[in-house]
Nucleic acid binder design. Structure first.
Lengths: 242, 242
DNA sequence: GAGTGGTCTAGACCACTGC
DNA sequence: CAGTGGTCTAGACCACTCG
């Protein structure tokens, strides 16, 4: 029912669109259960199998999480298993370490050309810049500079950031209703500048891993641009190629 | 039919196992079409939908490639689209560049403890070590040191390597019937040693991206261990986080 | 037109959770 | 026990490719 001709989109893909829209509108919040497959099938007037296929895709993209016998849930950054989805750093020797995010600075500014293009906003619109230090087992490992769309994070400042527990994305999710869904990272090796070297307690000029990231929300629009400098003396960046 | 009780494995997963086994045995070679879904369903005495689900999973893992109207094919590294699945380097400014693999050295040795553990072979068994330079648009970008299981690459030497066209994995696939299926990479930033600096035409001590990789075949056994040092002056390593 | 994969449906039954 | 997701089946029809 309702199938277009030029760009053919199967029913389950349309259902996915409707579900994504509902997620975006906040009808079901991160961590909550969405209605059962049979309920959704009735609501959209399709068979249960079609809803199922839509949910399958969204679960594969980490938008939803299925739990047999319990239901299907909106994915959340609070889930400890989701923590390392966006933080691919692991200690070279040894086990899991506790991590701590230390906010250093937070101020508002106007978007220059490059930031405006990356975040898909007008040049001159308000952005927020955050600098923070990430510690593993008490030792500084990453220094981040983060650019955010100002309109999406009203009231964000250094004091608010200090309330943060858990990951930054988990914090954005509950505090501002902004959920990061996917990201693109560009990695390079660079020499430590003076300031970063001081923060990371390494020598100026020593090699650091530069991780540049653009993160997107549901509607595939960029929300965050960040650049992290990682000391890889005791940690490496893990990646699986399938 | 035939469902175990302790570790329950659904039928389609068992079918996947049988298909993987057939791939591993070389019944269908990379690039070839496998039998149609209905044929496979008859062969395994299951419904077409069950075969379909098995193939779906394997296509998601890049073991098979579906082509509507034509059939399902064994994935191959010859496919230009598969080229950047294991080579995540892209030029910082500009378009696609031609790449060239220049073999430098190739010799046989006995596996030490670390290599033996990584490649899951006995200490002292034969391994092959390859050094090669990777050029983009004529300029050196990566210097690789590659450790291979000697038993899987009989007759491999520098002369043979010079016949290589396309990617190294594509070469291994046709020449030795060894197909890399997935890999794990560990990235760090390091300072260039004298020799690497010379090859990459950078200054000694300048920051390089170290990419350590273990690659696996169908049976999930490690086949290759390699370490690449990348000059990220004009290229970055691209990664998508979903 | 014949053959392939892709979609959609409907129904039966299994596995897991929680009351 | 009822309710959820997970599996398996069978059949109808659509979209694409190729001769």
């Amino acid at each position: 029912m309702a199938q277009e001709s030029p760009t053919f989109s199967p029913l389950y893909r349309q259902i996915r669109g409707l579900l994504t829209q509902a997620l975006q509108s906040g009808e079901w919040r991160p961590g909550e259960a969405i209605p059962s497959e049979t309920e959704l099938a009735q609501r959209f007037n399709v068979s249960q199998g079609t809803v199922r296929k839509a949910i399958d895709e969204m679960a594969a993209d980490n938008l939803l999480v299925r739990k047999q016998g319990k239901g299907t849930f909106v994915a959340t950054h609070h889930d400890p298993r989701a923590f390392f989805r966006f933080l691919r750093l692991a200690p070279i020797n040894g086990t899991i370490e506790t991590s701590q995010s230390v906010p250093l600075e937070c101020w508002r500014a106007r978007a220059g050309q490059e930031v405006a293009r990356t975040l898909d906003v007008e040049v001159g619109s308000q952005i927020i810049i955050v600098r923070r230090l990430l510690k593993f087992a008490g030792k500084p490992v990453v220094i981040d500079e983060i650019y955010l769309r100002g309109d999406l994070f009203p009231g964000l400042n250094l004091d608010v950031l200090k309330e943060q527990q858990g990951s930054l994305y988990s914090f954005f999710e509950t505090r501002f209703g902004v959920r990061m869904v996917r990201a693109e990272e560009r990695l390079r090796a660079v020499a430590a500048d003076r300031q970063s070297a001081d923060y990371l307690e390494v020598q100026e000029g020593s090699p650091l891993l530069s991780v540049e990231r653009v993160a997107y929300t549901y509607d595939d629009k960029p929300v965050e641009w960040r650049r992290g400098l990682c000391s890889t003396a005791d940690h490496y960046y893990l990646n699986n190629l399938n």
